[in-house]
Amino acid sequence: MTADARPSAIPTHGEARQMDGRAPFVIVMNAGSGRKQGETTAALIANAFGKANREYELMLVHDPSQLAATAQRAVELAQARNGAVVGAGGDGTLCAVAQAVIGSGCAFGVLPCGTFNYFSRDHGIPADPAQAVDLLLTARAHPVQVGFVNDRMFLVNASLGLYPKMLEHREIYKRQFGRSRLVALWSAMAMLLRRHRHLRLHVDHEGTMQEIRTSTLFVANNRLQLEQVGAAEAPLLAQGLLVALAPRAIGRIAQIVLSLRGALSRMSDADNVIGFAFRRFTVTHPSKRRRRVKIAMDGEVTHMQMPLEFRVGDTPLYLLKPEADVAAQNRS
């Protein structure tokens, strides 16, 4: 695995902000996230906020297509009342709500209700719903880094190629066999056994154009996820950078071996992976045509027009999270 030159200018995003102890919360909850534990979480919110005499409004979303619009209404309501916006759901839900929150002046809170919860785990937010609710009442808002693909934000990762196909395949398996990490792993291995085409991409990074052939281009903004696969570039996220990984064009057996290395946290030992840290780079197709490609961001699959510009967000997201020492203890 190789890493490109690292920029010396690392942006700073300022200090943590103390929340007003009377500020209300506007909570956007995805009713379909995780194991559909919405009723339990809603009861915990009512109990904890009632004891603290804290105002809140719960916006329950049953139709995923209404999530972005609901998040925007939540931000407008929070702005009018000098409150905070909370996303309750998996990483995809949190990303949709955070996209509306960033730059609004509102703090962003998290109640993790998904399968993997990479974003909340990376920032030390408790997986236990009761503890996560209690944290909202006491935490300061800390500036955290986000990534962008063109004008779309991501919190955890963005990718094109094989990975978005694997996510779609995973959703089919989940509908049949339920939501669990074991089902997700099973569906991924089944997808890797299939024949798939490699991408030919032109990558413009720091003024240098390189053509790569790969099954998938994966861009990460999550230290925990990179550490789980053993990527050597994981610490660079703390320096205000994102990390790109792209396996070289290899056969199916070699692809499975590479995936097993990742599962064993040994990706850094692999010679078949291109890896580099960056603040900004652009991906085009060799034909220069404005092709429409499938892309995944935080587990949600959509289509975007090339070229694709991956970059670190200029504005941080102010996240209600534990202090650094407590967050480190909570990570798992």
Results as ranks from 00 to 15, higher is better:
32 G>A: 15
6 R>D: 09
234 A>Q: 10
5 A>M: 05
62 H>F: 13
205 H>R: 15
98 A>G: 08
13 H>E: 02
13 H>S: 06
54 R>D: 06
11 P>V: 02
228 Q>K: 14
317 L>I: 00
329 Q>M: 08
173 Y>R: 05
15 E>P: 15
20 D>Y: 12
307 P>L: 00
67 L>Q: 02
233 E>Y: 01
222 N>W: 04
97 V>A: 05
114 G>N: 05
149 V>E: 03
231 A>V: 12
182 L>D: 11
66 Q>N: 11
157 N>S: 13
76 E>A: 15
308 L>A: 08
315 T>H: 11
84 A>H: 05
265 S>T: 09
141 A>F: 05
71 A>G: 09
268 S>I: 00
198 H>L: 09
192 L>N: 05
210 Q>W: 04
282 T>R: 14
224 L>D: 04
247 P>E: 00
90 G>D: 06
35 R>F: 12
185 L>C: 07
25 F>T: 10
241 L>N: 03
135 L>D: 02
314 D>G: 07
241 L>T: 02
19 M>A: 13
206 E>Q: 15
143 P>A: 03
41 T>A: 03
290 R>S: 12
175 R>T: 15
226 L>F: 11
120 S>I: 05
114 G>V: 11
264 L>C: 11
97 V>E: 00
7 P>V: 06
283 V>N: 06
50 G>P: 03
176 Q>D: 14
252 R>F: 07
200 R>N: 10
134 D>E: 13
7 P>M: 00
18 Q>I: 05
170 R>H: 03
271 D>C: 06
40 T>L: 12
65 S>I: 08
72 Q>T: 10
84 A>T: 12
176 Q>E: 15
63 D>I: 13
163 Y>Q: 12
152 R>G: 07
325 D>Q: 12
271 D>Y: 07
